[in-house]
Design a protein around this nucleic acid. Structure first.
Length: 581
RNA sequence: GCACCCGUAGCUCAGCUGGAUAGAGCGCUGCCCUCCGAAGGCAGAGGCCGCGCGUUCGAAUCGCGCCGGGUGCACCA
């Protein structure tokens, strides 16, 4: 149930009636017509631009057309009043009963209220995190993980079939570095003195891996040449790192459906097959690249390489898939990986990447467009940097020293719920300030707290109501008398609740889960406002001990708020709390 | 030099496929607890929406060109 689309349907029917009456030409394009909440509530409950959008094609003045439409709409029972304003807006006022009607629906649908058919069960693959398997996840990955997971939940709620996927970069040279670093920790576990030079990972997290290796092999690998152990250690180490990463993700409440190994693309003909597809389309050739202008590397020399003609599909320059020595660039397995996703039958692909991968966007989109003949859209969401603060002071992160701030550091200090909510209070493409002290503060400028507080307050009232003998289960409240829900502050809450299905679809369409976080903040705000109105106006208090039947309607209202908060938080992956501590 | 992202109140940021008098929090000023959780609410002050052209009935939103900040730019992923 989406009141806005309901009313839009009513508007479209009114237009058809005008066509039949010969008042409007047939065949007009209704595509641009909207029915939205007006920015200023004084303008009514809903505003439509129908008259202005159609005026030109209909050869009429917007206001004249608006008046005609208004006449039609006034006959509708759900509509209390319509007026024409400004250049030709239709301002529609719904009857309070229409608004109240949202409550039984929410109570009946419960956790499914807002769930949409928009996605039509289309299959979407969301690839996110995909951190190199060389160490624990850090704060940057955390943002990507939270964003990807929330986006997945959002699309699921909007009616898509979603697959959460992690691409393991276990094929490249960084895995050799990892294996050598683990070997050093292994020697250390066998009592050897070791030093970590440049080109190795010095982090403590490899110590247990070295010990585990010793448990498995004793000292049999000590003093052996690299050729004797490298292959085995690559596997052993990446497995250990992926276990670590899985635990990190679990601590944040993220569960992947698929872990896809880059390595599985090598030696299986998959890369060759994907490139063959591109070659058949004439998009692969041998050639030379121009040096980048303005910032010419000192050691530039022209090299003959195998190139993908990504410029055919919107990229700025063609991109190498094969190095001059014949080995693959990283781009080649990435092409094969995306080809694999297309072959698995997804209707849409989403890659969530760190902002430093911005330069990668066009070439990957070009590849997907070419490989799928433009059938499968690829959306790339870049998550900007997280700036860490502690009590307002910047918090330095130094990878060289091996002391970077990990996902675990963050989750252990502030908890998964707070981490997730805070990371979703910014658009993905805006940088995010994360202050360890501030996010735990219990005040209005902490959105996590503010939303949770609303939920806790409702729970508190419902408990008191139950103690006072008022039945508060949704099934009971569905039949409650709502006629006394009439104050402007109460209607404001109803209207905000009614926005939820519409907001959800917008957020899903734009792939923007942060809109859910901002909506919840707004909803909490109108609720807190109504709560405090009870200070001045006793009849607005939720608990009306001397009038149990009046209380029932109010219980229905706040239960509905609680349901929508739960549903929204559920998408963000945050657990609603019943009481503040 | 090129590409991508950002530029909105003193600060941090929302702003819906273009819509009416541009919003919130913090900070500042002043109010509201005999009353369901004041961990809250109400009100006030504070804006050339970076600049300029253009498209449109209508632009913070779309297009082009500038300015400022960030990121990335062959055989690293």
């Amino acid at each position: 149930m989406n009141l806005f689309s309901d009313i839009k349907t009513v508007v479209l029917e009114a237009l058809e009636a005008l066509v039949e009456a010969g008042r409007l030409p047939a065949g007009l394009d209704y595509g641009a017509i909207t029915v939205e909440p007006p920015r200023d509530p004084l303008h009514g409950d809903m505003a439509s631009n129908a008259a202005m959008v159609l005026a030109r094609a209909a050869g009429q003045k917007p206001r004249d057309l608006a008046e005609a439409l208004a006449g039609q709409l006034r006959a509708e029972p759900a509509i209390a009043a319509v007026d024409v304003a400004g250049p030709g807006f239709l301002n529609i006022h719904l009857s309070p009963n229409k608004w109240r009607g949202i409550l039984p629906v929410i109570l009946q649908k419960g956790a499914d209220f807002g769930r949409s058919e928009m996605g039509q069960n289309k299959r979407i693959n969301i690839e996110f995190v995909s951190a190199n398997p060389t160490g624990p996840l850090h704060v940057g990955h955390t943002r990507g993980a939270v964003f990807g997971d929330a986006l997945a939940a959002l699309l699921d709620f909007a009616g898509f079939q979603v697959t959460r996927e992690y691409y393991i970069n276990d094929g490249g040279a960084q895995v050799d570095v990892l294996a050598r670093s683990v070997y050093l920790r292994y020697l250390e576990a066998n009592g050897r003195a070791v030093s970590f030079e440049d080109g190795t990972y010095p982090g403590d997290y490899l110590i247990p891996v070295g010990e585990a290796l010793k448990d498995k092999y004793g000292d049999s690998l000590v003093d052996q040449p690299e050729s004797a152990w490298l292959a085995e250690l690559r596997l052993f180490s990446t497995n250990a790192m992926m276990d670590l990463i899985r635990e990190d993700l679990a601590a944040l409440g993220v569960k992947m459906d698929v872990f896809f190994s880059e390595k599985s693309l090598y030696g299986t003909g998959k890369i060759e097959a994907a490139l063959a597809v591109l070659k058949d389309k004439g998009l692969i050739y041998e050639g030379y690249l121009e040096p980048p202008k303005g910032k010419r590397p000192e050691d530039w020399e022209p090299r003959k390489q195998t190139l993908f003609k990504s410029t055919e599909h919107g990229d700025d320059v063609d991109r190498p898939v094969q190095k001059s020595d014949g080995s693959w660039t990283y781009f080649a397995p990435d092409i094969a990986y995306h080809y694999d996703k297309i072959a698995r039958g997804f209707d849409g692909l989403i890659d969530v990447l760190g902002a430093d991968h911005g330069g990668y966007e066009k070439r990957m989109k070009a590849a997907v467009r070419a490989l799928s003949d433009a059938r499968v859209p690829l959306d790339i969401k870049l998550t900007q940097l997280v700036r860490l603060f502690k009590n307002g002071a910047p918090f330095k992160m130094s990878k060289r020293a091996g002391t970077f701030v990990t996902l675990r550091d963050v989750v252990d200090q502030v908890g998964a719920d707070v981490t997730r909510f805070v990371m979703l209070t910014r658009k993905n493409d805006a940088p995010l300030d994360f202050d360890f002290a501030k996010v735990l503060e219990q005040s209005r400028d902490n959105p996590v707290f503010y939303v949770q507080y609303a939920h806790a307050r409702i729970n508190s009232v419902l408990k008191k109501a139950a103690a006072a003998g008022i039945a508060c289960d949704p099934a009971h409240l569905r039949g409650a008398d709502l006629s006394e829900i009439a104050h402007a502050s109460e209607l404001a809450v109803l209207k905000k609740l009614a926005e939820w299905p519409r907001l959800l679809e917008l957020a899903a369409r734009h792939h923007e889960p942060h809109r859910v976080a901002f909506y919840l903040y707004d909803l909490a705000s109108v609720f807190h406002g109504l709560w405090n109105k009870g200070n001045d106006l006793p009849e607005l208090r939720f608990l009306q001990e001397s009038y149990p039947q009046r209380s029932a309607g109010k219980m229905a209202l706040i239960t509905a708020v609680s349901i929508v908060i739960s549903n929204g938080l559920g998408i963000l992956g945050v657990t609603p709390v019943d009481e503040m501590r």
